[in-house]
Design a protein around this nucleic acid. Structure first.
Lengths: 342, 342
DNA sequence: ATGAAAGCGCTAACAG
DNA sequence: CTGTTAGCGCTTTCAT
């Protein structure tokens, strides 16, 4: 194996190699790869051709170290397997990809400790900005974010004490809108199905909004069903509905913490031959695909997940371009009334 | 603003700074951060304390450049908003995170051109391995992967001519199993609802498997409904079912390219008062959450999405550790018979 | 157990 | 429009 012509894994070519082949300086090669740089078309063409012949692959690692710019944006979401967060990441990705920025994605599994670990790990990659889901973090995570000296964007929440920027809304307020709707339509004995308190802060905020609104209407806010550890599955929604029908059979309407649990609750009614909304009405949250096509269709709240991502992406670009101001972008969730609440 | 003590965004501390404060060499600081390195406990403690005091954040970029190791694994999936691919990424992520490797995720949007662009971009980050979904790529994408000199793993397919490793199964064969089941139970006039041909290769393979199996049984394989551009939504599944019921009303059973379209088809039947499976049976693909709870529950094929991710992750670790052999891991999808096919 | 020197591949800064 | 020099922050390599 001393013959250098065999397919031994030779070291991949660098800009210096291209420079040698083309008879220019490495700096000129570097310029040939930047679209806006001053360079004669002929030189550039020759360089790009040589690069192609050699099978050259640009090394972002070296570029990043020298220029102190990585084109990374770090993002933490509770779970990858959630259409709402996926939509947000999709919107964000679309805006950032147009500037060839790469998302560094991490999953917290709805756990603040895990989020802290993740943030620490992501910051080592020197992202240009960091996007986190929610406005509650461990003290150390918050400190890490504050000291990172990059734009920090909290999403899916409107924190009372934001670290930097945010693009979000009040989960409590959104659910208050749902309660108002149900009361207006005539329901009085309204229940709430959500996850066990403590872990998923968005879910807790939604339950809080339920309690506040019911109290404001002078109604009983104690019909609370804890369905398990967030995120609540369709199955857990079904189980919770079974419990609700057994424990509080006179309940007229139920708000579920998400469309997924709402659909699960709906199927439990279908299995028991209980008609929705005639015997009991059901409201969800998140405007997942399923709520628009189930029979009956589900009343829900569209949190504008994709818009959160798009706005966050645009905000990041604005900040990086112009050192723009602090952005506190409030998203307005929309109540979508469908068949499940008459 | 000449006072250096104000909170001007000073340059973040480096190992050299820690070395100065601690009175050791930068090399010793570096060693203090590696768990396996030779260093006295006292020195290490002092260094870690100083690092904490200074708010030091390890710079992976510099580390990667010098060591020529990034701890990145590049992954392309068709869409982030798909529970199956999300499960695969989840499994992969779990295995790799344990070794603190970071996934670089990109979305092809079911488009091979986009995949090519994405692969090119991802390779610039010098990942240690690259995972792609499916076994069909543009010629240039294939060439890029072949010349990347890193492990390449194709997933969700068992390519006839794999680039390197693969962890997958035959989509055609999986659907043949579904057809066999339906025929065995007694159905003869069976239809297939899928996306328009050409784009989504997994969907096309599934349709092919349907045609092959029907032909093998001596049955009519021409009941094919094209439901739109992949991926097929629940709504498109419902529309396709409406068309099927109108155009081929004597159809006894229908296989849908995914559980999502299958559920959409089911809702169309519910809206029309058509009973499933008595009047028409429905089979899906993917074992999504919804199929296990819908009324009726859906017969489906579990492609073991999460297992694909776990196996892929383990394969990558084995290869990187031991320069292990080429892995051709065949996953065995499982038919799950539920209420929708009697 | 620790240190000194060198350099990974690229580009900022300056020169011409 | 092109080149020279230096260096980003870390770790390889070789000493001690």
């Amino acid at each position: 194996m001393t013959d250098p012509s065999v397919k031994a894994p030779r070291k991949p070519p660098t800009m210096a190699d291209i420079a040698r082949v083309t008879g220019v300086s490495p700096m000129t090669v570097s310029r040939a790869f930047k679209s806006d740089s001053l360079i004669s078309p002929e030189t550039r063409d020759a360089i790009l051709k040589a690069a192609d012949d050699l099978g050259y692959v640009f090394d972002s690692t070296a570029s990043s170290l020298r220029s102190q710019k990585t084109d990374f944006v770090a993002v933490t979401i509770p779970s990858i397997n959630n259409a709402n967060f996926a939509d947000t990441v999709g919107g964000l990705s679309e805006v950032l990809a147009a500037r060839s920025m790469q998302i560094l994605l991490g999953y917290t599994n709805y756990d603040m400790q895990e989020e802290e670990r993740l943030i620490e790990q992501l910051l080592r990659r020197k992202p240009q900005a960091i996007v986190v889901t929610g406005g509650k973090h461990t003290p150390r995570a918050r400190r890490l974010l504050e000291n990172a000296h990059i734009p920090v964007i909290e999403t899916w929440d409107a924190p009372t004490d934001p670290i930097g920027h945010f693009v979000g809304f009040s989960n409590a307020q959104a659910v208050r809108g749902m309660v108002d709707h149900l009361v207006e339509v005539g329901y009085r004995k309204i229940a709430f199905i959500g996850g066990d308190a403590g872990r998923d802060t968005r879910g807790s905020d939604r339950r809080l909004g339920f309690i506040e609104a019911m109290t404001a209407h002078g109604l009983d806010a104690s019909r609370l069903i804890a369905a398990g550890t967030p995120p609540i599955s369709m199955r857990e929604g079904a189980n919770a509905m079974a419990r609700l029908l057994h424990d509080l059979p006179d309940t007229e309407a139920v708000i579920c913490v998400s469309d997924l649990s709402a659909f699960g609750a709906l199927t439990e009614c279908q299995r028991r031959g209980i008609s929705v909304p005639e015997r009991i009405a059901i409201g969800g949250f998140g405007d997942y695909e399923i709520g628009g096509i189930s029979v009956p269709t589900l009343t829900t709240i569209n949190a504008r997940a994709r818009e959160i991502g798009l706005s966050t992406g645009q905000l990041i670009l604005d900040i990086l371009d112009a050192s723009g101001d602090v952005g506190h972008i409030r998203i307005d969730p929309q109540l979508i009334v469908r068949e499940s609440t008459r």
